[in-house]
Design a protein around this nucleic acid. Structure first.
Lengths: 376, 376
DNA sequence: TTGTACGCGTTATCAT
DNA sequence: ATGATAACGCGTACAA
């Protein structure tokens, strides 16, 4: 099943077969008879190009490295979504993946050493924490390998980035709680950009900012314990609040647990919203509202971007738009007539950004033009 | 940075460089001088083999297809674990991946059509539900492509499988509850094999089987609602129980929710254990005990197996061993002195099967020889 | 309209 | 101990 075989079948030369199959016939053309014969022979023998031969000839490999920092998002579903976006886009462009997970900086550096010498056409680096070495990546880029990162912001001009507008994430969450009637909204603060969004939403609604309603957590403490501590903190100080914008779904779960333990009702007394739209939001004691960061799209964008760089096109770093997913924890009037979340075992389509389990939660996309689609 | 360049540097032939770098010197050997010169030149120029050229020559591609059925395990962490195992093993063997997720049978068939003609050396098919067509896979196998599946049992003799001993999973869970003092253990039944394990554990402890304590769920209803319904079912019928063996962590979460709603305490009144060891077990209202199905190992095994088949070795389908993970929900005396689960943001190592967040939950491996290690 | 020749980078075989 | 040659499958520049 090589060009040779088809050429033999039809009785023409290998190069002619190649031309026909690639439609590289110049100005002249082929005789209709030969054309048809070649095509049918190829069809019949199930001909398929040898990717290695093409790659060898083209000086490419059609392989993209994907280095992901996996800890910090267990169970959040982030990795699944990101990988689905990445694998879909890679497959569509006939790229194979060298997929690697790393935990420690040492592991990351090991991978970088490999990338430097390996047979990769490009590299996508992502995950959550910025535990990677910018210098390593710059060296790789300087060595000629296109690099696309998946971080909040570009970490260097030569390293293109598909980011997330964090201020927008919290702005969306906070504005939603305001729209639901909350006025004294508490906030767990892990990241400055997200804190900005919280304040912007308050300002836009004319609600004064009160630092007493902000609980400062360490930058990487996104766990459920942080949520519990935050609620306990506010209560200990007798700070009244009727809404909480957490920085992760785990934090929000911790908030729920502590609120219930202290006799509060959600959403009746307090509205709660998390970030990430983790799968377990759907089956929390009170189904948890959340802001999805649209990781599937982020993965797709990363592949598109790195391929564009490989192709020598001029590209720019982009950001993807967050999505608001409303469930009971942030909704004053839980709709009894709204169908209950379907079990997650129901098959879900690949194309729609949302999962089938959430067909019944309302999704609010941001209406403004989406910068992440600039290059489509 | 090709062999040619090094040869030019040193002033020898290309083939000699190849021999030196591959240590294929036959019986004769090389002069120490040339040897050193070649090695240092290669080192200095950062020489790296061109994988495409090697693949072309070898008639291989070093690419493995990985087709995963993703729905049904959102948030369980299964996919992460499986993929970490797969990518680790693939990287170790210098194999790249063509990773694809499918939801519907139609999508699966599309992928199969591609595999049939594509540049894959082998195929790993997995996920949870058996929604794949055995015929399609057999056709692919018959076409010469090694196929390894990740299902409960081999679905055809020509398709090797890395499976899970389901009876052992529930046997382990049930025996654990018995060891903790439970005698009237309820059971949610989705799969016959798991039901067998439940009965085996009872029998081994001399506890009579009582069909009234078994709640029959549909084969694919592993969601939290099933857990709620099961508890409600037993209570409605006034069936007494002091333990529940659920069939998933979501089911177990549903059990917890309904038990609390009805005023029961866990673990004081009822012991609860789930299956899968999903990440959210650690931050449930009562940290949830579970049986891990060791998906990381399963992924590693699948790669090993498919490479063995490619290499023409005789292989056999295997099974991986489940691991019992004990947290508070199944433990009569919650140890106050036991450190609380650390937040998941703590970095975790890649090698150990367990996550850092669970460093403090006790893991009970099965002491018997592990069949999955037969081929190591 | 079709065919020939060459080269991508590597390795195995055979010759020197 | 080292070198020359052929071959893997493909695409393209050039020749006919």
């Amino acid at each position: 099943m090589a060009l040779r075989d088809i050429a033999k079948d039809v009785g023409v030369s290998v190069s002619l077969v190649s031309k026909v199959l690639n439609q590289r016939l110049g100005t002249t053309g082929v005789s209709a008879a030969t054309n048809a014969a070649v095509l049918s022979a190829a069809e019949q023998r199930g001909y398929r190009k040898n990717a290695s031969a093409v790659a060898l000839l083209a000086g490419r490999h059609n392989i993209l490295g994907v280095y992901l920092h996996s800890p910090g998002m267990a169970g959040s579903g982030i990795l699944e979504e990101l990988l689905e976006g990445i694998s879909d886009a890679a497959f569509a462009h006939h790229q194979r993946l060298q997929l690697n997970f790393f935990s420690t900086p040492a592991e990351f550096q090991e991978l970088c050493a490999d990338a430097h010498q390996g047979d990769l056409d490009g590299l996508v680096v992502g995950g959550i924490a910025n535990t990677v070495s910018v210098d390593r990546l710059r060296a790789i880029r300087a060595g000629g390998l296109p690099v696309v990162t998946l971080y909040d912001h570009p970490i260097h001009p030569s390293l293109f980035n598909v980011g997330i507008d964090h201020a927008r994430v919290t702005r969306l969450a906070t504005a939603h709680l305001i729209a639901q009637g909350a006025r004294r909204i508490a906030h767990i603060c892990n990241m400055e950009a997200r804190h900005d969004g919280y304040r912007q939403a308050l300002a836009a609604a004319g609600i004064p900012y009160d630092a007493a309603r902000v609980y400062d957590a360490h930058a990487l403490d996104f766990g459920h314990i942080t949520g519990e501590q935050a609620v306990a903190f506010f209560m200990r100080r007798r700070v009244p609040f009727d809404g909480i914008v957490a920085q992760s779904d785990q934090e929000a779960m911790g908030c729920l647990n502590m609120l219930f333990q202290r006799g509060c009702r959600v959403p009746d007394d307090v509205l709660v919203i998390g970030i990430d739209d983790a799968p377990y939001c759907a089956f929390a004691r009170v189904p948890l509202s959340s802001v999805s960061q649209n990781y599937r799209r982020q993965g797709q964008e990363a592949i598109r971007l790195v391929l564009a760089v490989i192709a020598g096109q001029r590209v720019r770093s982009t950001k993807v738009e967050p999505l608001l997913v409303v469930r009971d924890s942030s909704h004053r009037t839980p709709a009894l007539d709204r169908p209950r979340d379907v079990p997650v075992t129901v098959a879900r389509g690949r194309q729609p950004a949302r999962r089938a389990r959430d067909r019944h939660s309302r999704i609010h996309a941001i209406p403004s033009p989406c910068p992440s689609q600039r290059h489509d």
